[in-house]
Design a protein around this nucleic acid. Structure first.
Lengths: 385, 385
DNA sequence: TTCGTTGCCGAAACCGGTTTCGGAACAAAC
DNA sequence: GTTTGTTCCGAAACCGGTTTCGGCAACGAA
């Protein structure tokens, strides 16, 4: 009464079985060869003569024969699909990238006749469950792991399950042995941060602040290191008071950077680990009467579309998400096909996009501090609450 | 020499075949039943006794048995997957929605044990090819078609192929017979536009402009109709000079709306079919010295995140993309399972999000026009070219 | 007692591919 | 003229499920 409901549904789903698809049988019959010979020819087995292989492949192309990947999968165990699990409870971080990223990944997958499947999870814990389920049900032969954490439990899980995977971003900051077996693709945020500092130092800035991102993510540490390295190369000393961390949203960015501006010796320039934080600061600072690019120089990182539409436009280092998706899918498929994971690593660089948010300092830190104090006295009547 | 490269690769891909997965055979052996009985019990066939069904299902749950969908697919022809083809050459339109939308769709699919696969195409024409290929290779049992056009060739293709599909948005504006057979989910943008006009009329606005979107898309016409209906209900006459079309980007929006502002009798409020166009206008207008919300009231549609961060925040009608994805996936799966497509239709509404971009008019159209002319004379020295 | 029914289940075919195994044909070596 | 070894292909098993078909028991009616 209740249990056979699925049967009832199924019975009514009678859809056209009259597909014009060419099957392996038919291709074989057309060629006067056996099914097995044609199959091995299509897959390039060396015990089929060169000439026969050619004949089969051209006939297949002409008749439009394409094997059903799920029919192959039942024997080979491979479904020719890669998957990615998105964490849907994240704040709007990699949001704008997603479309481009997927476009790149799909493009690469399709061109090799693979499929891209996606899933979502509601938490880090749930992500592991979803991954386990996808592996269990053989829904994918490998996984792209976005947004790598310093200590990333997804890596351990998939390593134990012996399932191919590739990281978008490095992991294991501090314990490099962790990274030994995995393959990854990343963009050298640390280099960008270094260049940002050198650019600002070149403008004449002496006190340059840094607002980092969530230390849970690996890139956060790398970008801070890049900032420090930039200071060193510029011959500037690193002042711990100028370094703030954990800005994962716009509001965080505004709060952290505004705190820097309250210092006795405020920075005349601030480098942000993410555009979102930088934009948050720009809005808040403008509300307080700061002129971005003159009173304080700002450089971001990511290259989200809003940078171009902010005023002044945000100087940032743009990441090519499409390329990232394309490379990650390509490397992952190569790994699934048997290449050594440790050789499948790539590091590229972000490209500077100049906006109006940075430039030479107009005021010294002391003058800036005085201006800030002046503003503060003016703006607050007596709203202490 | 060249042809057997794929074989070489394959030979090195020897991965763990020692999966702990429980197979149908094993479940049957464990129960002392035959493979076929267990299979039919799992699928709720009525020729298996109620008690046996229960016994099989609880044992399956306990042993963690889950059928391989691709093994089922080879016989049933259904892969338990739905797909969506994104057009990657679109401007940054539905960008911010994608993450939420996918989260909703994946959530619905996963909960029914289905998979969501995505592909991208580089043009409308390419989209058709990709769809054809996915159908041909049975990569999905049905499709979600986003961003419906007035005349949408995807619908015709899938109808002819007899492949289930559901539209995100209606289609066939003007020839309603087109819609007869398809199922869809949509958000009533026309209602939102109508409410926007009534809201502005309630503030006291008499001249309300409209900047529409690309007429290629169906929603564009519906939203314009909603605007007109709103005017009618408010007892205002529609002035064709106040209606502009085809704004698909920020810059378009700015250009179209600024053109309205140059009229002898400019509008004191403008309704935009998309947030992007509205935001473009806000920036441009502010550059020209307009005060958004006072000199001119602005209302958008979509509810993209940037609305909240613009200043003033944009009053807009927000679309719940997550729900949209969730409903679309659910309805599509129900259709694949045999329900009548024409009964699978849903229309929901966008919700008003109040910002500071609208309010009562401060100036009459004539006064506004004078102010504009004044600004123009001031700003332009003699840059005619 | 015999003859349909009916309820429930097992044997075997089947889906569309892949892979194993063995054998025919032919050339080279003895 | 055998023997040995290659080269190339076909027959059949196989992957993990689904579905068809028929058989056996139990039961009611003739």
């Amino acid at each position: 009464m209740t249990a056979n409901s699925s049967y009832q549904r199924r019975s009514s789903a009678n859809r056209s079985p009259v597909s014009g698809r060419v099957k392996l049988d038919e291709l074989a019959a057309h060629l006067g060869l056996s099914k097995s010979t044609v199959s091995r020819a299509m897959n390039g087995y060396p015990d089929i003569s060169e000439s026969t292989q050619m004949r089969v492949k051209t006939a297949a192309r002409k008749l439009g024969y394409r094997p059903l990947s799920h029919a192959q999968a039942i024997r080979t165990g491979q479904v020719r699909a890669i998957a990615m699990v998105l964490n849907s409870d994240e704040p709007d971080q990699h949001n704008p990238f997603l479309q481009d990223f997927l476009a790149g990944a799909c493009e690469a997958a399709s061109s090799l006749d693979w499929t891209m499947t996606i899933s979502t999870a509601t938490s880090d814990r749930d992500t592991l469950n979803v991954l386990r389920r996808l592996v269990e049900e053989r829904k994918a032969d490998g996984f792209i792991l976005p947004r790598t954490a310093v200590k990333d439990s997804r890596v351990g899980l998939l390593r134990d399950l012996k399932v191919p995977h590739i990281l978008y971003g490095r992991t294991g900051y501090g314990q490099p042995n962790n990274l030994e077996e995995t393959s990854w693709f990343d963009i050298a945020g640390e280099t960008a941060m270094r260049k940002a500092v050198l650019r600002l130092a070149g403008f004449g800035h002496k006190r340059i602040g840094f607002v980092g991102s969530d230390p849970k993510f690996n890139y956060s540490h790398l970008r801070r290191d890049g900032y420090l390295e930039g200071l060193r190369e510029a011959g500037l000393s690193a002042d711990p008071a100028l370094i703030r961390d954990g800005a994962r949203t716009r509001d965080d960015g505004a709060a952290q950077a505004m705190a820097l501006m309250q210092l006795d010796q405020p920075p005349t320039a601030i480098v942000f680990a993410t555009d979102l934080a930088a934009l948050g600061f720009c809005s808040a600072a403008q509300d307080q009467g700061f002129e971005i690019g003159r009173d304080v120089a700002v450089i971001g990182y990511d290259g989200i579309p809003e940078c171009r539409y902010a005023r002044p436009a945000l100087t940032t280092f743009a990441v090519e998400s499409r390329t990232a998706g394309q490379r990650l899918a390509t490397l992952l498929i190569r790994q699934i096909r048997g290449e050594d994971p440790t050789t499948l690593r790539e590091l590229t660089e972000a490209t500077l996009v100049e906006g109006g948010s940075d430039g030479p300092p107009q005021l010294s830190p002391s003058e800036l501090s005085k201006k800030i104090r002046h503003h503060k006295d003016q703006n607050r009547g007596g709203n202490h609450r």
